[in-house]
Structures are given as structure tokens and as C-alpha cells.
Design a protein around this nucleic acid. Structure first.
Length: 420
RNA sequence: GGAGAGAUGGCUGAGCGGUUGAAAGCACCGGUCUUGAAAACCGGCAACGAGGCAACUCGUUCGUGAGUUCGAAUCUCACUCUCUCCGCCA
């Protein structure tokens, strides 16, 4: 949710920002409805003031046993006007929020302008592509050959875009998650939270998935949705609260399954476990004051990177351009991990500063100098566990089809050095 | 699933038709005192919106939504959530 006051005062800046995000310019329409709303409110409030005054008079008059019939008649007349003005006001408010709800965040000033992922800008790189003296296999070839990854079974159970992992492969997934949680809680200063995987509309509205992106989500029963990311429950932890400045920043992490319908991704990455309806992820969320959020984004990125550095896997980081950013984000870094089997970089983490966009929707404030200001929220993957598993398989594979266990994970495997 | 109780400001908690946006306490902020701190004392302290250059004025809000009334935190109805007891269950 954007600040209507900002739109009122900076209509052309607002329109330009939307244009850079491939959204049509609508400041004129917004300002017009907003004016109508405020005009209605001004008239309505004057009448309400008049009514309140009369009611007070009636109260005093009655206690003195005076005749107040004419006052009562006046109020009855006013009540008719009030109800129709209230209706009009509601129409205008609904009209306005319907538009504002679906407008994405304004990009930060240092975000590159562009249309799509081709305009993203490389921010930094870590390590080098590994060299193989054989042709590296893709993760699903490795997994299926080892009989530890099965897509026929999962399709029997649940259809396409699922996977069944077995034995040591299943344990690898668990070890990766444990390693990430240990790292983030012990070294990176995040508090581990165990959260619900089902949430209400209002939570998804708060983080920005609803109302615009309902088709990307799975529903569960009448009143619940499956979380598409732990960002939703973690960020909503601070909804409808006034936080104290000296308790910030809050840093939360959670290991959860994520459920996505992948509605618009038909035919994309259909083989393997790169793009699934269900996957697990360790999520990072920070809540800060506005002046700290830029710094916090760099810190969060570094926390996410620390996992891949420990795993000694090559990656690069790109700054997403305006056209490629998510709805709630002001600025986003993607970490793209190198996959030798794919011979490509693939997204493994996305770290975003949402500014006050989500906190406006959630009504999360900070008491600062005796004033209440909107908090800033950030979220990032730290990291997607399934894709990390893919990255380990492809980067640590050996010629005989086995996989080396990265050193930082060996303690979870009784110091074993290879998967089998 | 059955029975009962409740939802008030950052927190605790009074109010149960008419200057009650709401007592009191805690927390917080400012001041006096103190070498400094604490204590004590004095003062301030809800949010959101509309209007105004501003001092300020007005409106809305006591879980949510409707209703009764000239007037609702207070009465009625529905819903949501929380707590206690019983049953069932990982």
C-alpha cells in the first residue's frame, strides 16, 4: 500500500515509477477519487458536528426538564443526510483502496530501470565455475540414477511438479535446512520461529500476495491458504503493533514448506525439482526503522550468501531491474547459483527491502521520538533448500555418479565424505 | 464436539444510555531535586482522518459488522477471537 499523500504531492514521480514497473499511469484517476472522497468527508463531518452539538443540547435540556422536541426533529432531519453521505463516502473509499491495493511498491532510487530479467545488473560474484573432466549431469539424472529421487512416485501421489526423496537424499535435504538454521541463529543473529503453514486472507494481504496474486496460491478449506513462503507468517508477526525503537531490528528465520500453484509457468522447468508446487525454504525476515533498512538489506544479503560461501559453491548476485521486481519490493537482490548440469545460473535466493509498503498494509508502527512511524520490512531466502540440494548435487558430483558431501555438512553425516 | 466466561489506550484495569476519548496503576517522555544515578515530587502522554500557513478546530474509533435511540464503550442481534471446564485426539 502506497502513501496517498505521496501520490497527491508527487503525481508525476509516482507515474514514472509505475511506468518503470510496466504499470499504467493512474495518478490522475487516484487524485480525482481522493478529492471526491475528501470533499464528501468534509461535508459529512460538518453535519456530524452539528448533530453532536444538538444531541448534547438535548441531553442537557432533558436533564433540566426543558422541551427539546424541535431539536430532536432537527437531528432526525440531519440523520437522513448523514446516511446518504456515509454511503457516498464508503463508495469513494472502496474505489480508492481497490486501486491502491493493486499498485506495486515504488522502486528505490538506485534500482536499475528495465523491462525484464535481461536488464538486471550483476552486483557481485563469488568463486569460479568448477571444472569437470567429464560432462556434468543434471540433478535429476544424478538423483534418479542413485535411486534416491523419484518423480514417477510423486506423480502417482500428487501429479506433476512434486518429488519423492529417499534415504540419504532425504537426509541431505534435512541436513541442509539444519545447517542453514544453525548458521542464521548462531552466527547471523536471527531468531528461529516455528510458524503456521496455513494463514488467513488478512496475512496474505499484509505481505502483498492478496488481492492481486490469488491464482499463484493454494487454498485450504474455506478460510485458509497454504503459505507460498514463510515471509507471510514471519512478517505478519509484527502486524497491528507499535514497536519500540530500542527493540529493533527484529530478525526472524523459519524453515517451512512453501506451496505455489505456478499458474503462469506452464512448460517451464518441467523436469526435475527446480520448480515445484511444494518445496522447503529457510526464510529470513527483518523489521527495522526506515533509516536502517538499506543497511539491513546488505546485511541480509550477506547472511544468505554466507550459506553458499560455506558450501563453497560459485554464485553471482544481480540487482533486479524495475520491471523484474516483486510487487512489494523497493529493491531486490537475487542470488543466482551456478548449476554445472544446467550450465546456467539459477535463482536460489531473493532478498528484498519492502520499505513501509507491507507495514502500511499490516499497520505496523514504531514509536520514535514520541511519534508513530511505519516500520520497514525486509525478507529474503536463506536459502531455498530444494535448489540448494540441486546445487550441491551438480557441483559436488563425481565421475562415477556419486556426490561429495560439502565439508560444512559432513558433521550431519557422521563425517562421511560422500553421499553413498 | 458440549457447558460457561470474556474482548476497553504500549501493558494492567475501572466504567454498564447523556461534557467518558474514557478513572487508577505501570511503562514512556519532560522538569525539580542530586556530584551522577535511583527514589520522591510536578507536568505530559491513544490512534486514524478532514480542514487550516499555523496556533488550533472538527470527525471517527472501546474485538468486527449490523440494529435500537435525539444520543451507545454502556442496550439488541450476528460473526470472529481468547480463556476455563468436560469429551475426543497427534
Amino acid at each position: 500500500m502506497l502513501d496517498i499523500d505521496f501520490i497527491r504531492k508527487n503525481p508525476s514521480e509516482f507515474d514514472n515509477a509505475l511506468k518503470s514497473r510496466n504499470v499504467e499511469s493512474i495518478s490522475k484517476r487516484i487524485i480525482k477519487i481522493d478529492e471526491e472522497k475528501r470533499n464528501t468527508q468534509t461535508i459529512l463531518q460538518n453535519i456530524l458536528a452539528e448533530k453532536n452539538l444538538l444531541s448534547k443540547k438535548i441531553g442537557i435540556g432533558k436533564s433540566k426538564k426543558e422541551n427539546v422536541d424541535s431539536e430532536i426533529k432537527k437531528v432526525e432531519k440531519l440523520n437522513n443526510e448523514i446516511s446518504s453521505l456515509k454511503e457516498l463516502e464508503k463508495i469513494k473509499i472502496d474505489e480508492l483502496t481497490a486501486i491502491l491495493n493493486r499498485i506495486p511498491n515504488i522502486p528505490a532510487k538506485d534500482v536499475p530501470i528495465g523491462d525484464n530479467e535481461n536488464d538486471n545488473i550483476e552486483y557481485k560474484k563469488y568463486g569460479n565455475k568448477p571444472k569437470f573432466n567429464f560432462i556434468p549431469k543434471k540433478h535429476f539424472e544424478l538423483g534418479e540414477n542413485l535411486n534416491l529421487m523419484n518423480f514417477e512416485l510423486s506423480s502417482k501421489l500428487s501429479g506433476s511438479r512434486f518429488v519423492v526423496l529417499k534415504g540419504i537424499m532425504s537426509k541431505l535435504e534435512r541436513a541442509i535446512a539444519t545447517f542453514m538454521l544453525d548458521k542464521h541463529t548462531l552466527e547471523n543473529g536471527y531468531t528461529e520461529i516455528s510458524v503456521p503453514f496455513l494463514v488467513k486472507d488478512s496475512s496474505l494481504y499484509g505481505t502483498g500476495q492478496l488481492p492481486k496474486f490469488a491464482e499463484d496460491l493454494f487454498t485450504a478449506g474455506e478460510n485458509h491458504w497454504l503459505i507460498p513462503t514463510a515471509e507471510v507468517p514471519l512478517t505478519n508477526l509484527v502486524r497491528e503493533q507499535i514497536l519500540l525503537e530500542n527493540e529493533l531490528p527484529s530478525r526472524f528465520t523459519a524453515y517451512t514448506p512453501c506451496f505455489r500453484s505456478e499458474a503462469g509457468a506452464a512448460g517451464k522447468d518441467t523436469r526435475g525439482m527446480l520448480r515445484q508446487h511444494q518445496f522447503t525454504k529457510v526464510e529470513l525476515v527483518s523489521v527495522t526503522t526506515p533509516d536502517q533498512s538499506e543497511k539491513e538489506l546488505e546485511r541480509m544479503l550477506n547472511s544468505a550468501e554466507s550459506i553458499l560461501r560455506d558450501l563453497e559453491i560459485h554464485y553471482r548476485i544481480v540487482t533486479l531491474c524495475t520491471g523484474d521486481m516483486g510487487f512489494a519490493a523497493k529493491k531486490t537482490y537475487d542470488i543466482e547459483v551456478w548449476l554445472p548440469g544446467e550450465n546456467a545460473y539459477r535463482e536460489i535466493s531473493s532478498c528484498s527491502n519492502c520499505g513501509d509498503f507491507q507495514s502500511r498494509r499490516m499497520n505496523t508502527k514504531i514509536k520514535k521520538d514520541n511519534k508513530n512511524i511505519y516500520a520497514h520490512t525486509l525478507n529474503g531466502s536463506g536459502l531455498a533448500v530444494g535448489r540448494t540440494l540441486i546445487a550441491i548435487l551438480e557441483n559436488y558430483q563425481t565421475q562415477d555418479g556419486n556426490v561429495l558431501i560439502p565439508e560444512c555438512l559432513q558433521k550431519y553425516f557422521d563425517n562421511k565424505k560422500t553421499l553413498i
